[in-house]
Design a protein around this nucleic acid. Structure first.
Length: 825
RNA sequence: GCCGAAGUGGCGGAACUGGCAGACGCGCCGGACUCAAAAUCCGGUCCCGUUCACGCGGGGUGCGGGUUCGACCCCCGCCUUCGGCACCA
């Protein structure tokens, strides 16, 4: 064995051997329990992987190898979320077709992943932009369509002027496009939606059944936004149909002094009086043209106009004026509200602005206020509410008012959700075509499943346009198609699908990636799914992670799978910032790539450092020096291994002190096995690495100063076990040392070491002695020492004596094996 | 504004269920090796005071209170940073 650690030689050797042995091929059947360990579906960017990405892939690789050593059949696949805007924008920038750039980027990602020694089963690699994959993405669209979950709708939608496409609700962040950060505006287009709102309640309920970070569950809960209330009908003087509003506070109905409709509300036109029409049209136009940013920036001031019409409050017949304002959203509830300025902050602000009446109908516990200086939204009792006065609100008052109105057919209980349907059409080229043909006779007709895929044509010019038309619309060859139903002339749907559709089911594809008669082989999916461990960044909390859950439930309802949640356990890794604490980005020029780190220190050092740098879920700044520390750790490990391999004839020394050091070292070994095992199980990789470092430091000390403390066989055994613990983290160097120590086959096929609690148990422990809670002394005490003996020894300590002298001990606290505390006066 | 998470040496962080604060690593300081440097190895490294020295004392986990024999950990009130939501009636 070489005396010097040469990571590049070792890594090249073992990567070659792994490839030759096809070491990471996963069989579909085995007597072992299965473990499905999955990383978020990556988009293969032109920039390649940074060390930040490795923060995701290294830990999952460690867990995969760990489970494999613990006797599991592990599925650890990788593939590419290759469709989508970034790929297309990158291709436009480079002036090359996205198919070409995507292939190139994938090859680079693949190379980098091999370079850092990830144990993917590449025979299962999938690429969402290839027809044998998107064929099934299209099949999922048909499934949604068949089940009434895919529909076409019109209305104002988020439009990103830079990406030149419509966005889903989830993809707008603070009024900006989640991808490019441009201000989004609104556009009227006919679009395809998936009816995710049908699943709102189940998406909410089933969060209780999965082991996900509480923060993510909370974000989904808030996004789904369930609220319980009632729909209340306000009669309109010259109209049969009432104006219906949604409210969570029907108990405040007597305080409703005006109503507000969303500017786009369909009744606005009808209810506007001739003298108000001009002002209403101006306001509607202004509201429509506003970008989301402008709307948010004017948040302080409420705007709106009176439309001239009135409605009748169902509880007292009062005539209330109707206004329109952009603070009422068409997409939520009924798009209309009853305004109760006394008990709603927004209504209060609006009423103050436009001098509308404010009537107190809920008195706080301290008594009615008469005139309010701000909205009172707390609990209280009803006042100014005729027969309902005195009821506790909202509690019993809510029920009383809704029941009273319910008996008259004017209200019913209603649950509303903030969640909107998922808008899936995109006016861009690089995506899976929506498999629909619009027929003049039959309307939209789905392409039959056996005629999938609808191939994405190889367009030369795939530039997006501002007019809301997909580039596919420019290809007559693509557009013109016969109606599958009547055979008459038809036009293909030219929008493509949001890439989140591709990533909503990919985890199923890995179970049977080459299956060509269905999206997946049921038996294989029954065996492998759901995913046991899913790891990725927290930024997909309400996008991918919500959509994939929705897909799973649809499949369950359709009888294709028998589970309702795709990912049993989810973990979010922390991000890695540049050394200066800033976000790594190509434009800032501060990106650290695994290539540069591997070149300098080797893949194993990179891997160990990725684990050691900080707690897994925590963001942290990169440090080149830090990697060096991990590289030194592996070098010392190599040196010790080389010396032990070369050593001959050392034996147990006669001296008692030396044998005790040997016993202590073996005790540390068993403690370390225990700690590393538990730490890896619970994602505490940083402390697992530090425990290994501690053990190694001790072993090096003993080797340098008292190597006779252990026999050569014991040294070899110690090193072999250490190597097994290291194997998931630094697989290349572990393979080499394993082989040098005479191990058979791959270190991965050796069983994970077990510890002996007895061997790990301390014989002597340190008991600290405190006086009034302050540390005064330490005692080395046998673990099984009697309480009285320990107390006596504690009292006898010279330093302790100084603090007990002349004082009266009023209490003695004794925690076996831990401490003694004398409380004195 | 609302919801959530986090504040520990020069830095990343450790401390199990309320029981030795600062493990491990980086950096820094000193030493060895070397003609020299790098690499490597050995020792030191929370702050203040005290001692020739081994030591010893005091303070210390964002700030202010509280509970407890004992608090980085539990409770109350603040401050700061980060993440999410942002007129959802």
């Amino acid at each position: 064995m070489d005396r010097r650690y040469d990571p590049h030689a070792v890594e090249a050797k073992w990567q070659r051997i792994w490839k030759e042995r096809d070491a990471y091929r996963t069989p579909d059947e085995s007597g072992k329990p299965k473990f499905y360990c999955l990383d978020f579906f990556p988009y293969p960017s032109g920039d390649g992987l940074s060390v930040g990405h490795c923060r995701n892939y290294v830990p999952t690789d460690v867990v995969s190898r760990f489970f494999r050593m613990r006797g599991h059949n592990v599925l650890h696949p990788m593939g590419w979320d290759a469709f989508g805007l970034p790929a297309e924008n990158y291709a436009l920038k480079m002036g090359v077709h996205p198919r070409v750039t995507t292939e190139r980027n994938i090859a680079n990602y693949h190379r980098q992943m091999d370079m850092i020694g990830l144990s993917f089963d590449w025979s299962r690699e999938i690429t969402s932009s290839l027809p044998d994959y998107y064929r099934w993405t299209q099949w999922f669209f048909l499934l949604m369509y068949e089940r009434g979950l895919a529909y076409r709708g019109t209305g104002q939608q988020w439009w990103c002027p830079s990406c030149k496409t419509i966005l889903a609700n989830e993809q707008v962040e603070q009024g900006r496009c989640w991808r490019c950060g441009s201000d989004v505006g609104k556009k009227d287009l006919e679009q395809w939606y998936f009816r995710i709102t049908d699943y709102a309640q189940r998406l909410l309920d089933d969060l209780a059944t999965i082991e996900w970070p509480e923060q993510i569950k909370l974000m989904q809960t808030n996004w789904i936004g369930r609220s319980e209330g009632a729909e209340v009908d306000f009669a309109l003087p010259d109209r049969d149909e009432p104006l219906t509003v949604f409210t969570t506070r029907p108990d405040t109905l007597f305080g409703a002094t005006y109503m507000v409709l969303a500017p786009e509300h369909p009744l606005v036109d009808e209810l506007t009086t001739p003298e108000r029409r001009a002002a209403v049209l101006v306001y509607q136009d202004q509201a429509r043209r506003q970008s989301e940013i402008e709307r948010l920036s004017t948040e302080k001031e409420k705007t709106g106009v009176f439309i001239g019409g009135h409605a009748l409050n169902p509880v007292n017949g009062a005539e209330v004026p109707i206004w329109i304002s952009d603070y009422v959203l068409m997409g939520y509830g009924t798009g209309a509200i009853m305004a109760v300025p006394a008990h709603d902050e927004r209504d209060f602000q609006f009423a103050t602005q436009f001098e509308l009446p404010i009537v107190e109908v809920i008195a706080p516990p301290s008594g009615a206020q008469g005139t309010l200086s701000e909205a009172y939204i707390g609990d209280g009792v009803m006042v100014n509410s005729a027969g309902f006065d005195g009821l506790a609100a909202p509690g019993e008052a809510f029920a009383a008012v809704v029941d009273w109105l319910g008996e008259r057919g004017l209200a019913r209980r209603k649950v509303n959700f903030k969640l909107r349907d998922w808008l899936i059409s995109r006016q861009r080229y690089w995506g899976a075509p929506i498999p629909i043909i619009h027929c003049e006779q039959c309307g939209p007709v789905p392409v039959p499943a056996d005629r999938l895929p609808v191939l994405l044509p190889d367009l030369e010019d795939f530039h997006p346009t501002d007019d809301g038309q997909s580039p596919l619309a420019r290809s007559a060859e693509f557009v013109n198609a016969a109606c599958p139903k009547c055979g008459g002339p038809g036009r293909r749907e030219t929008d493509t699908m949001d890439t989140f559709v591709c990533s909503s089911w990919y985890h199923l594809r890995y179970a049977s990636p080459r299956h060509d008669v269905a999206a997946f082989d049921r038996d294989k999916v029954d065996y492998w799914l759901p995913v046991d461990l899913y790891v990725g960044g927290a930024e997909h909390a309400v996008m991918h992670l919500l959509y994939a859950r929705f897909f799973c439930k649809v499949l369950q309802d359709a009888g294709y799978v028998d589970f309702g949640e795709p990912y049993s356990t989810l973990r979010n890794q922390g991000m890695i910032q540049a050394e200066d604490g800033q976000k790594m980005s190509k434009s800032k020029g501060n990106v650290v790539t695994p290539d540069s780190v591997v070149e300098l220190h080797g893949a194993d050092s990179l891997r160990v450092y990725e684990l050691f740098i900080a707690p897994f879920e925590q963001s942290v700044a990169w440090s080149d020096r830090g990697v060096q520390g991990c590289s030194r750790f592996l070098s010392r490990y190599w040196n010790l291994a080389a010396e032990v391999v070369a050593a001959q004839g050392i034996g147990v020394a006669a001296g008692g002190a030396e044998t005790e050091r040997g016993r202590a070292l073996l005790r540390s070994l068993h403690k370390t096995i225990r700690k590393v095992t538990r730490d890896v199980e619970s994602f505490r990789f940083n402390t697992a690495v530090s425990a290994m470092m501690e053990l190694q430091n001790e072993a090096l000390d003993v080797w340098a100063g008292a190597r006779g403390a252990l026999s050569l066989a014991e040294w070899r055994e110690l090193l072999a076990t250490f190597t097994l613990l290291l194997a998931p983290m630094a697989p290349h160097v572990a393979e080499e040392v394993h082989e040098q120590l005479g191990g058979e086959g791959s270190v991965l096929d050796v069983a994970w070491p077990s510890w002996d609690d007895e061997l790990a148990a301390d014989e002597v422990v340190t008991v600290v002695v405190q006086v009034n809670g302050k540390l005064r002394d330490r005692l080395a005490v046998a673990v099984d020492a009697e309480k009285d003996d320990v107390l006596a020894a504690a009292r006898a300590g010279a330093n302790t004596q100084r603090f007990l002298d002349g004082k009266q001990v009023v209490k003695e606290v004794y925690v076996p094996g831990k401490l003694v505390n004398f409380v004195v006066k």
